[in-house]
Design a binder for these strands. Structure first.
Lengths: 221, 221
DNA sequence: ACCTGAACACCGTTCAAGT
DNA sequence: ACCTGAACACCGTTCAAGT
């Protein structure tokens, strides 16, 4: 897998271990990894720097600040979604595949949802992904504003259910603590083990209906 | 009305103006107001205290910390949604009304979405609202886990579109900045004025289809 | 060119002290 | 009982030094 150990230096050097060079990309990957492991709140500049074998101020030689780190992380996640070959395929098919890829990327990285879903999009790769999606729908005869609306709808659905996919511990204790006051809620949350499967099934089903809804509307015009 | 000063203080008292007493409820309302005006990031303990005519540490005599303030704000917003008369009404109707009320509450307070959607539910009023919803579906013949899933789905949809309802400025500049690289995106974001209406129409339409989907599934069993 | 310690203005929270 | 200043451990960010 990673290039970390392989890169032409199998032999151990004397002296302190050389740390991998600090680059924008290395920072982005470390940030995503840190968020994946410990959540967004744990991704502070100093902790991120420490993980890279460096002090916090050093990061500012490679990125402009925390905001840019968010942009870089978004680009990284989007790279797992973006598929330029979408253009030219039938739009319902393309829309479904996009929706699934989007959902999968965020179930792979559930902890980034908190940051990315509440932060403006500013990075080129994400804007490019949007453009590709709009091109696909444009080729399918969609009007611009409507296509954009469909895009945002899919994003919200995917993010919501991907969040839920992982949200197991969000309200379980409180529901139990609520005890007598909310017996149905307490019972339901007690036995919830594989909500991941349910969330995924719900999402995929809803996505199909969402697409179907647009197909009907489009053909009615 | 009545005599010169109802509540005994129509007359101006000498000395510094008496500030309203500091209570849990006053703190909660001030916090919601502050978030509505300036966003969650602006709702720091010291700014909140300042608005209440007091210093930050004073707040800790009435609330346990920022986490409890979030709980109180959630309870406040939920009080605009919760309708105990839901139980006993036909579930599709009740579900639709719940979905609309939920959406409206968060378009009324778009800035709280960022906090509330990424924070565990711990307050009794919200748990009670969930319980009422589950009771309604239970009376309609729903199985517990499925009902919970439907509830979460509606929440995600409503939150997503309510966020979008207000997200006007989220990616507009960047889309323009993207310029030549993303012409379709740039064009679409240029003319978007009343996205509120579009978002609401999309949401309501999707909500209806969501309910219809469950009705079909339920009657097929 | 790039890393660093020290500094700055801010957080949330605690606590002994005042009244 | 309730408000306060001072303090603590943390933020993100800047910058003059160092090499």
């Amino acid at each position: 897998m990673g290039t970390a150990g392989a890169e032409g230096s199998g032999r151990r050097r004397p002296g302190r271990p050389t740390r991998p060079p600090l680059t924008e990309d290395a920072i982005a990957r470390a940030a995503l990894q840190l968020i994946d492991e410990s959540g967004w709140a744990a991704c502070t500049m100093s902790r991120l720097a420490h993980r890279l074998g460096v002090r916090a101020p050093s990061l500012y030689h490679h990125v402009s600040g925390q905001q840019e780190i968010v942009d870089l992380v978004r680009s990284l996640v989007v790279s797992e979604i973006h598929d330029p070959t979408l253009v030219g395929r039938p739009w319902p098919e393309a829309m479904y595949d996009f929706g699934v890829a989007y959902y999968r990327a965020f179930t792979n990285h559930p902890n980034v949802i908190q940051v990315l879903s509440t932060t403006p999009v500013r990075d080129a790769p994400t804007l490019q992904m949007y453009e590709t999606f709009l091109q696909t729908l444009h080729a399918g005869g969609w009007e611009g504003a409507r296509a954009f609306e469909a895009l945002l709808g899919i994003e919200h659905l995917a993010l919501g259910f991907a969040f839920e996919w992982n949200a197991e511990d969000l309200m379980l204790e409180s529901a139990h603590a609520a005890g007598l006051g909310a017996p149905l809620l307490a019972e339901v949350t007690r036995g919830r083990t594989n909500q991941s499967d349910i969330a995924e099934a719900s999402y995929l089903s809803l996505l199909r209906r969402y697409i179907e809804m647009f197909r009907v509307e489009l053909s009615a015009e």
